[in-house]
């Protein structure tokens, strides 16, 4: 069980330079194992800056990041060890692949952890299997794979470190729908298997409705909302004001309600919408 707490975090870019800009200000929240948290906000809202503090890639000007109650910067020399516990998958992670073979690339993180050869081998094979990376692919050069496959290899490279907390920065950007579905499914599977705490930075409300338990909404450097998906999406006006949207089917339901149909607005996925409408049509009445 891991708990990540962020306390009064403030980060200023280029302090005391002409380019000075407060990226995040006084952000406080806490999250624990087993949750998938969607981090949403428009570009420049500070969401990417915020998550880069979790594993000490950025160091806040004030405030703390606590892992299980201990400040991650308590011993600055040990920050690498924190990075093994809190993994981070960057945007377009396939651009960081560098090894001759897929196997070696996935092994890079576990090797840096100083594990035994046996452990490394086991982790690489297990992770590869979970992500649908075949034995044949493991021996190939990562640069000979398709875009979707490369993405999975890059994700495997971080998952093989078996972090208790894992952050994904727009894991589905640029993928086609099939590639996107696989990646989201695998993230969920990782959470289910390891009980990790997962953060997903995303622009897609449809994706978030499908996989996230909670949403952390950033707006101009401030934490605007941190609540269940249902609670956040039930406030479309507030989201709209900060330049965000709700899923298309939620919009349909809001419009129906505006037209005087007593439907529940808290419908965020197509499947929910279908089952809701079916029982609504049959029962003529549905308050659940």
């Amino acid at each position: 069980m891991a708990t990540l707490s962020v306390e009064n975090l403030t980060y200023v870019y280029g302090e005391k330079s002409p380019f000075q800009k407060t990226a995040i200000e006084d952000v406080t929240f806490s999250a624990k194992s087993g949750e998938i948290i969607g981090v949403i906000g428009h570009t420049g809202s500070g969401k990417s800056t915020l998550v880069q503090h979790f594993n000490g890639l950025l160091k806040a000007n004030s405030g703390k990041v606590l892992l299980d109650g201990a400040d991650i910067w308590e011993n600055p020399k040990e920050i690498r060890k924190i990075r093994f516990k809190i993994g981070m998958v960057f945007q377009y992670p396939e651009y960081q692949l560098f090894e001759e073979t897929v196997y070696k690339d996935i092994a890079f993180g576990p090797t840096n952890m100083g594990l035994s050869a046996e452990d490394i081998n086991k982790r690489v094979l297990d992770t590869a299997q979970m992500l649908g990376i075949t034995a044949e692919m493991l021996e190939k050069s990562p640069f000979d794979l398709s875009g979707g496959e490369k993405r999975r290899v890059a994700i495997a490279g971080v998952m093989a470190m078996q972090p208790e907390i894992i952050v994904f920065d727009e894991p589905t950007a640029g993928l086609d729908p099939a590639g996107r579905d696989i990646v989201l499914e695998k993230i969920k599977e990782y959470r289910d298997r390891t009980g990790a705490l997962v953060f997903i930075v995303s622009h897609s409300m449809e994706d978030m409705a499908r996989v996230a338990d909670k949403l952390l909404v950033m707006n101009s450097g401030h934490l605007s909302m941190f609540d269940t998906v249902k609670k956040v999406f039930s406030n479309p006006q507030k989201l709209k004001k900060i330049g965000l949207n709700v899923p298309q089917v939620t919009k349909v339901f809001s419009a129906l309600k505006e037209k005087g149909i007593p439907v529940d607005e808290n419908v965020f996925t197509v499947n929910d919408a279908v089952s809701y409408l079916l029982s609504f049509l049959k029962g003529g009445k549905n308050n659940d």
Partner: peptide, 23 residues
């Protein structure tokens, strides 16, 4: 289009006369 979808659903609900009381 979202608007078209809403009007189709409204028409459907009207046709199905959903429970008479509410629609």
């Amino acid at each position: 289009a979202t608007g078209d979808c809403v009007s189709e659903l409204l028409a459907l609900l009207r046709r199905e006369n959903c429970g008479n009381t509410e629609c």
